[in-house]
Design a binder for these strands. Structure first.
Lengths: 188, 188
DNA sequence: TCCTAGTTAATAACTAGTTAGTTGCAAGCG
DNA sequence: CGCTTGCAACTAACTAGTTATTAACTAGGA
């Protein structure tokens, strides 16, 4: 095998993403990552230091790439939710990674994520000030509910995941329509 | 210490719930559960067989008790969501337990949960047939979105969880109002 | 020849699970 | 009552296997 440090790094990252998505941080096995890369176990430590640092590297790289991929439009949150839905559908491992992160890194504070959130909250505020978006909710409230609806189909317990799901197009429609109803003008 | 098998069992279950909620199945340590119960480690194996069976016992007991506590009213889903919100607020460990279950037991099929889901879906269908609930969504679609909104405030990444949250009463209001908008009559 | 990618094998620490017992309690019996 | 016998609750120490991590080594390329 030809020697290529970068390629080995990339293979390790790919294998690590799959491993961490499947088993989480505590459940992941460095041996299995090495075996699936394939790469020697010692190289993982040479390149990434430790299992935890490897997770952090994988998470930062993949999730941030993910976040960047869906562009945020505060004046059309239903469409944003639809795009987010599409991305989750195409890339379910990223959502799992995020969930593990939430559970196992409860104090994680990635600057890039904070920046992304701040930008979204700010965009919502501006859209509200311009009258292009309901002011029935604060920016944080809106972001919270939209995010929940966006991933709603992935929040099923295993039991509910087993019942026959609607086709993807319909699931998408449900998400988009739900957000539409959420943000529509006051309705009392 | 006086000998009481039932009390010991109960202490182990309490400690196990805390341990599993904090670290998940793979991350949980039997020694730590024994230490925190407090109880001897061997007793855990005598009473529950293995770490996995202990998790299953804890999960079944706690989550099913939880599910039973909030009664479902298909004709008033906003109120149901409000009650569910209250229960999640009062009992955040249960939600964590559920999330771990979803991640680490992707093939779990607890009969009691399936029955509870089936009953809910059925109640929704009947409410729809009686014209008491929107038919814009199927029962599964409605349950999916309502559940997502119900737990929306607990889906934050650590980064978003750090920003100043609204007071509990307001968070509740947001959930209830979101569900109200979701189920209100057609709005095209 | 020197530097870096990659390998091999070892190790120290940890972990789930077991074993071989000890302790307290109560029923049975004289 | 006093004694003992059976039994379940409980315990401490251990084992067999796994895991993350590292040190010592080999080889390829400039």
């Amino acid at each position: 095998m030809v020697r290529d440090s970068d390629a080995t790094r990339a293979r390790i990252l790919d294998a690590a993403e799959a491993e961490f998505a499947a088993y989480g941080i505590a459940g992941a096995r460095v041996d299995r990552i090495a075996e699936n890369a394939p790469a020697n176990k010692a190289l993982i430590y040479k390149h990434f230091g430790s299992k935890d640092e490897l997770f952090d590297t994988v998470f930062a790289q993949r999730v941030l790439a993910f976040v960047d991929k869906v562009d945020f439009d505060a004046t059309d949150l239903p469409a944003y939710a639809g795009r987010g839905f599409d991305l989750y559908e195409a890339n379910p491992t990223t959502l799992r990674l995020t969930t593990w992160y939430q559970l196992e890194r409860p104090h994680g504070q990635l600057e890039a994520i904070k920046a992304s959130n701040a930008a979204k909250l700010n965009a919502i505020k501006e859209a509200q000030d311009a009258g292009l978006l309901t002011s029935a909710y604060t920016p944080l409230e809106l972001l919270t509910e939209v995010r929940a609806l966006m991933m709603s189909w992935h929040l099923h317990t295993p039991e509910l995941a087993m019942v026959r799901q609607p086709a993807r197009a319909r699931r998408r429609e449900v998400v988009v329509e739900s957000v539409r109803r959420l943000v529509q003008g006051d309705s009392h």
